[in-house]
């Protein structure tokens, strides 16, 4: 008996180019399922950024615009102001959102743009092969912090979710993880709620997804999941930061 493949309509039937054990595939899949469940495949518009997921339009089966490094929130603003009834989201990594694009992300939050941002935080630059990210943990070794991130010298990680939750225009912020099934299910709930908050016109919504980068962390996929649990979650914490009580 042939097994039915439970494949989201909003995801194309292709093989990922992502490394084994990378969280991008999981988060793409979640987004595809959420878009199907909300029945918005025909109206949603995604904004891809610069980083490993630069060409996520190769996998998503809905309209996508690829943006310059860090500028996805500005591009999304242009889209949403022209098409206020379409669901618009950005998909950005920690270099894109928390370094070069810091101004753009703060200002969409401050303006309360009815947008959703999926923020992939893997504490490292993946696409450029493993340099320090703004979210790299203290003592973490990367190609540009070869003896570990020294906070005296390199400064401290930025807690993006906490910072954006402070903005009055932000309606919903949650930090989630992808290190096991239980947390992946929670991540999906948060992403779905973020989209629904946008649909309800309540303001800006953001989900920070603690993600793996086995290749640049120098760990196996399984070790990477453990590393999120043992290092990233203790530092950043997971859970809702704003909009927990919103009923949508």
């Amino acid at each position: 008996m042939a097994k039915e493949r439970l494949h989201p309509k909003s995801i194309q039937d292709k093989v990922w180019h992502y490394c084994p054990g990378c969280s991008h595939g999981i988060v793409h899949r979640i987004i595809g399922e959420v878009i199907d469940e909300l029945n918005i495949q025909k109206s949603v518009i995604g904004i891809a950024s610069v980083g490993c997921s630069y060409n996520n339009y190769e996998y998503f089966n809905f309209d996508v615009i690829q943006a310059a490094h860090g500028r996805a929130p500005a591009v999304a603003t242009g889209v949403k102001r022209v098409l206020p009834n379409n669901v618009v989201f950005t998909y950005q990594g920690d270099g894109d959102l928390a370094a070069i694009g810091t101004a753009e992300i703060i200002h969409v939050a401050a303006r309360g743009e009815r947008l959703t941002t999926i923020f992939i935080n893997n504490a490292i630059y993946g696409m450029t092969s493993g340099q320090m990210a703004p979210t790299t943990l203290p003592e973490q070794i990367t190609k540009t912090t070869p003896v570990g991130r020294n906070t005296d010298y390199h400064g401290f990680p930025i807690r993006i979710s906490e910072m954006l939750a402070l903005q009055e225009g932000t309606a919903f912020v949650e930090r989630v993880s992808t290190h096991d099934v239980k947390h992946i299910i929670k991540a999906k709930k948060a992403i779905k709620k973020a989209f629904m908050v946008q649909q309800a016109g309540l303001g800006f919504s953001l989900v920070e997804v603690l993600s793996t980068c086995p290749t640049n962390w120098g760990l196996t996929p399984l070790e990477s999941q453990e590393w999120i649990k043992d290092h990233m979650i203790p530092y950043y914490g997971i859970g809702n930061l704003k909009g927990k009580d919103i009923k949508v």
Binding site: I47, R71, A74, T77, G78, E104
Partner: peptide
Amino acid sequence: TFLQAESEIAAINMVYGASAVGA
């Protein structure tokens, strides 16, 4: 829409987004 952007960089990228959806 009239929107005062946070920078010229943001403004041109808002233009990019608006143009991409056909406006």
